Every structure is written in C-alpha cells, then in structure tokens.
Simulated assay, not measured.
Amino acid sequence: MSEERRLQILRAIVQDYVSTSEPVGSKALLERHQLGVSAATVRNDMAVLEDEGLISAPHTSAGRVPTDAGYRLFVDRLSQVKPLSRGEKAAIREFLEHSVDLDDVVDRTAKLLASITQQVAVMQYPSLSRSSVRHIELVPLTSHRLMVVLIVSSGRVEQRVLEVSEDLLTSEGETLVADLRTRLNAESSGRLLSEAAHGLDGLAEEFAEDDRATVRAVVQVLTDAMAEQREERLVLAGTANLARTGGDVVHLAPVLDALEQHVVLLRLLSTVNVDAADAVAVRIGAENPYEGLHSTSMVTTSYGTGAVAGLGVLGPTRMDYPSTMAAVRAVARYVSEILDQ
C-alpha cells in the first residue's frame, strides 16, 4: 500500500512540475490532490522518493522536482496513454489528407507534430530498403519510348524512361506491354524490393525470343530502381520551440548541435521497437546515447506498413509525456493510413 501511495505522490509531483515548472512541496500536493493522508505522511514519502533517487531538491527550498529516474518510473507506470480528443483527431486527419505527394506528407507531418506538442518534431523519410512493391506500370510514350513506373508501399514513385527497339504502338507492341505489366506485378506486388528484384531474374526467358531484349531492358531498369541506395533524410520542425523552454534545457548549444547532426537522430529513430503495434519509445535524459541530448527526452515511434521509418519529438525532460506519446502515436497512425491508400 505504501509503495502505491508513493507512486501516487510521484505522479502528482511530475504532473505539478510539468504544469507549473516550479518545485513541488508537500503543502502544494495536499492542496491540489486528494491524497487522503496527513502532511507528515506526504513528507515521509517524499523523503523515501528522494532516497530512491526519484525526486531531488534543486536548491534549499522545500520543493522537489522529478529526476530522470522519476520520469522513467512515471512513464513506465502509465496505465494508459491520454487519448486525443475527437476534434484533435479530425484536425490531424484533415490536415494530412490534403498532402499532394510524399514530400508534402513528410513536411506537413513534421510541422503538425511540432505544433501539437510544442516540441521539436523529427521525421525520417520512408526507407526504401524496408518498402515493398505496390504496383508497376508501363506507359508507352512514343513508338519506341517506354516509361517504367515503380510505386512502393512508402508512397515513393520512381519513374524511368527507356528506348526500345520494338514498336510499342502496334497491336503486337501493345500486347507485349500488357503481358509484361501483368507478369511484373504478379512477380513483384507485395514483396520487399530486394525480394522483388531477385524474383525478376529469368523473366525474359518466359517471353518470345523477339521480345526478350525489351523485357530484359525493363527488368534491368526496375532492378536498378529497387536496388538504388539513397541517403537517409530527415525533416525537422519546431526548433524554435526549444527557445521557449526557459531553463528546462540546461545546455542549449549541444542540443542544437545534435539536431544538425542528422546521423545522430537517424540512429535514435532506427532503434524504435517496432514489434508491437503502436509502440512508442521514450528516452529520458541520460538514456539518450548522445551526451548533447542528456537534458532532453525523445518520444518516437515508427510508421508505415512494415515500419518503414520513424518519427517523433524531442524536448526537455519536463514534458507532458502522456499527451506527447498520444500525439506521436496518433500522427504516425494517420501517416501510415495515408501512405497505404
């Protein structure tokens, strides 16, 4: 019972400190929360919490603030993540549904997440290596020019144009294009790009000898597109929000330096646990492997079918964790729905 009561007091201290940014004393706890115990009991429990390293005194006042360990226990013991309101969910969906292409989706998502949480939003572009083939389209442009279109699950669209020797506008050419389109999608749709590329080996041998040169050219273009290595990219939004945190981020320069080093953020996003649906990872203070981020917390998750990339927010450890976790999870879910359309 005493352990549960101390957890209740810790929860109250975290909530009050996040709300007021002022150290929390026993008198304030009794006034703001229905704890059902005496002032002496609250003081004793706070002393135990301090001995356990869950709260600390920033100076000689009677107030206490949560430590990184205290925030961690608070997050781990959350019975449920605070849900967003129906209006908030509708606003997210409407804002993201107006996106015109993948770049716009990423840009809108980062700005939206920064606006909702008032933190720095970080969003990774969908990783091509973890994407699968959604559809392959072949479009004759002229009698001897063919556009090959690769559409992947992440929302990316790759286009290549190649010259072929056959006349694509004749009845025989149209039949070849239709048959090849059907076979390409039968072999590739729903498969990871690396698997799809391997599955196209030998496809040309299944066509008439006169058509094999064209088929090989198309397969080569698709294989190159599927195997092409791309530089991982990030989009940041809301960096100015760090300036509004007051003294919460003790050393601002190292944090800004870390934000400029995208490789650091990519590494953090890549280690999100994607095994569970809607998994949200929270790194608090020194749990961040990069020393420059030790005065911050990161709340991240993955998005897209097969968890193709990550997104999240970075802010001070004095963060509204339930609301931030809910926002990150909800935005990721809507982005996934849009990319899967």
Results as ranks from 00 to 15, higher is better:
residue 311 L to G: 08
residue 211 D to M: 06
residue 71 Y to F: 15
residue 257 D to A: 01
residue 241 N to D: 05
residue 99 S to R: 03
residue 261 Q to L: 04
residue 185 N to G: 11
residue 124 Q to A: 05
residue 266 L to C: 11
residue 3 E to L: 07
residue 230 R to F: 06
residue 76 D to F: 06
residue 173 G to E: 13
residue 250 V to C: 04
residue 296 T to Q: 02
residue 164 V to S: 04
residue 2 S to V: 03
residue 222 L to P: 03
residue 278 D to F: 14
residue 97 E to I: 00
residue 33 H to C: 06
residue 25 G to Y: 08
residue 21 S to L: 09
residue 276 A to K: 14
residue 306 G to S: 12
residue 284 I to E: 13
residue 176 L to M: 14
residue 280 V to E: 12
residue 292 G to I: 10
residue 19 S to M: 13
residue 282 V to Q: 10
residue 49 L to Y: 10
residue 294 H to T: 04
residue 281 A to R: 06
residue 148 V to L: 07
residue 57 A to Y: 14
residue 152 V to H: 05
residue 260 E to D: 13
residue 171 S to V: 11
residue 301 T to I: 07
residue 17 Y to D: 03
residue 193 L to C: 09
residue 111 K to T: 00
residue 272 V to E: 04
residue 149 V to F: 01
residue 191 R to L: 14
residue 121 A to M: 10
residue 112 L to V: 06
residue 235 V to F: 08
residue 181 R to N: 12
residue 243 A to T: 05
residue 318 R to F: 04
residue 254 P to I: 01
residue 295 S to M: 11
residue 260 E to I: 01
residue 323 S to E: 12
residue 317 T to K: 01
residue 81 V to L: 09
residue 82 K to T: 14
residue 129 S to V: 10
residue 97 E to H: 11
residue 21 S to F: 01
residue 123 M to D: 02
residue 292 G to H: 06
residue 334 Y to G: 00
residue 193 L to D: 11
residue 297 S to H: 09
residue 8 Q to R: 15
